[in-house]
């Protein structure tokens, strides 16, 4: 039996009928065609699929679309300003070379925003520990840590 799901995604209301087994990540990527949210694993560990659900970072590959019914969802496509100006976290990643291939980046940025929200002035160690849900294979994390440090200052 298909289920009807309605939610707000990046400020816009969306409604669709989906199979109950549809994951939020699949809903975002396939139904809404917002392909910035990436899927890098099948055991909910890489964090590339991270989006904000009612303001908190969650792994969209490990949540049913139904679980987000009625929720406010923000994806990587929804955090820059309407005129294209990058969110301070995105800008900091750019300035500090916190990305290489770009695949983990959307999830990394969404997690990092959540991190700074819950730990407004993080130390290097808090940042490293706070990225426990995100894997990056390119950067060795060094510049991601620097970017988040810089963004936390900019977001204050």
């Amino acid at each position: 039996m298909p289920v009807k799901v309605s939610m707000t995604v990046n400020g816009k209301p969306v409604t669709a009928e989906v199979e109950p087994r549809t994951l939020l990540a699949t809903f975002i990527r396939e139904t809404l065609r917002l392909t910035g949210t990436h899927v890098g694993c099948d055991t909910a560990q890489c964090g590339a699929c991270t989006v904000h659900l009612n303001g908190r970072a969650v792994k969209s590959c490990n949540i049913l679309a139904s679980q987000a019914d009625g929720a406010d969802v923000v994806t990587i496509e929804g955090i820059a300003r309407a005129d294209g100006t990058l969110h301070p976290m995105q800008e900091a990643f750019r300035q500090h070379h916190g990305l290489q291939c770009g695949f983990c980046t959307p999830g990394m940025v969404m997690s990092a925003i959540d991190l700074v929200k819950t730990t407004p002035n993080p130390t290097e160690q808090q940042i490293r520990e706070g990225l426990d849900g995100n894997l990056c294979r390119c950067t060795g994390y060094h510049n991601i840590v620097k970017a988040i440090q810089a963004a936390s200052a900019a977001m204050r």
Binding site: G47, R56, N62, S111, G133
Partner: peptide, 9 residues
């Protein structure tokens, strides 16, 4: 527990 995203859910 788990990681940041797991703790939020």
């Amino acid at each position: 527990i788990g990681d940041r995203m797991v703790r939020n859910m």
